[in-house]
Design a protein around this nucleic acid. Sequence first.
DNA 1: CGGCGCAAAGTGGTTCAGCCACTCGACCAC
DNA 2: GTGGTCGAGTGGCTGAACCACTTTGCGCCG
Lengths: 239, 239
Amino acid sequence: MSDALRPMSRSRLYEQVLERLRDHVIEGELRAGDKLPPERELAQRLGVSRASVKQAIVVLEVQGFVEVRHGGGTYLVRDNLDLEPVGRLVERRRRLPDVLEARETLETRLAALAAERRSEDDIKAMDAALRLMAEEIAAGEPGAEGDRRFHASVTAAARSSLLEEFMHVIAEQITESRNESLRQPGRPHRSLAQHQRILDAIAAGDPKAAAAAMRKHVQTVAKVRLLSWDPEDAGITDD
Amino acid sequence: MSDALRPMSRSRLYEQVLERLRDHVIEGELRAGDKLPPERELAQRLGVSRASVKQAIVVLEVQGFVEVRHGGGTYLVRDNLDLEPVGRLVERRRRLPDVLEARETLETRLAALAAERRSEDDIKAMDAALRLMAEEIAAGEPGAEGDRRFHASVTAAARSSLLEEFMHVIAEQITESRNESLRQPGRPHRSLAQHQRILDAIAAGDPKAAAAAMRKHVQTVAKVRLLSWDPEDAGITDD
DNA sequence: CGGCGCAAAGTGGTTCAGCCACTCGACCAC
DNA sequence: GTGGTCGAGTGGCTGAACCACTTTGCGCCG
């Protein structure tokens, strides 16, 4: 029983209400414009207080799923209450191939943009990150923090808030990949060298070279990571 | 006076509480990890009920701004409570260059992946979308719906749920771009031809050609869109 | 009959008082 | 030290109540 002692987090009541509401909308085949049952009725049928129902409805409201009309009822804005637009991204972790694929797509482009738009300060930040990574490696550590900062500074240099947001979404999973990759014998040193090549291309203002160097780097990480991956559904590109 | 006299929608106490909390965090220079005042104290100091305070805190919780520990207090996860992490994407829809840049990045990759992974059904879906678009154009319409379906079917064929989610995030803005672009004289027909080339490359299983065709197509749309753009900050790539 | 007005019902908004459940630190017993 | 107990602090949730706004429908009047 390794993870038998897992976190044990009791979910808030409003979260369970949220779940039930989603089910209700699906099973009742409710569509946009349809009216939800009154709060009082929901509270009674679900066996919770009206305050808890309201907390759930407030959540749905700020997420744009329902429109609440004072004195007039609560109405569906979409055909379901599932977190499609953005929230689901935070939920369904575990889709590793997807993550690595997204990472390659995003970081390759970010590297190219960085090569075009980087300022002197950006270059300094990247350089500082690499020096930190070198120090970490010299101290026998994997160099994960320097690695992280390097990629962060490249992302910042690209000046693309949307792509940056997308990177934030998968940041956590990338951290896992990074740590696992850097534990491989000899990886830290080679990774540092790859970073240096990326930095050189960006400093030289060469988008194509920067993209190529970044692509190679990310693919290397992906390979390490995927070796220990259960290929329930195959299909990672390798260019 | 259609809806001239409509505003006046004060109410929503929890929204005001939210506002006050944001101010408090900023003015108090609270940082990630800091503890928020107890709910009871907040309720008293703001002159509202604890229930309203809780509604606001639930909102902050689902948006990932705070971590609520039962019996242990409420803690900041970020340095502020402004909608930066994800909500901003939905909010500030004025970063057009960013959107077009993200679209190019994503759709180019999606086209390449689609060329590798598409099934026969995917091809049929794309083909059907193009035929619909042709019909729309023949009927004198811009062909926006066929356009939309084509891109959707390419995205679906790429079999990458994360990239697909990212596309959803910018879907609305892309729709605007599409509509404006297709209103240009002669655009619908040329756009259809570009789509056909993309489809051919995908059907042929040629990732590079598919990516190239898609890139050209998206860049064309971007140019039309950017002509009417106020370049407060320039900087769109053109490869 | 048809429109108008108004009261009642329906429904969301908010409050209040209270109790339960969990955390954390202090203190005590071993 | 280790572990237990206890109490203060704090979040979780409830139920009843009242207010505010919308909708409904009935009855009155023209």
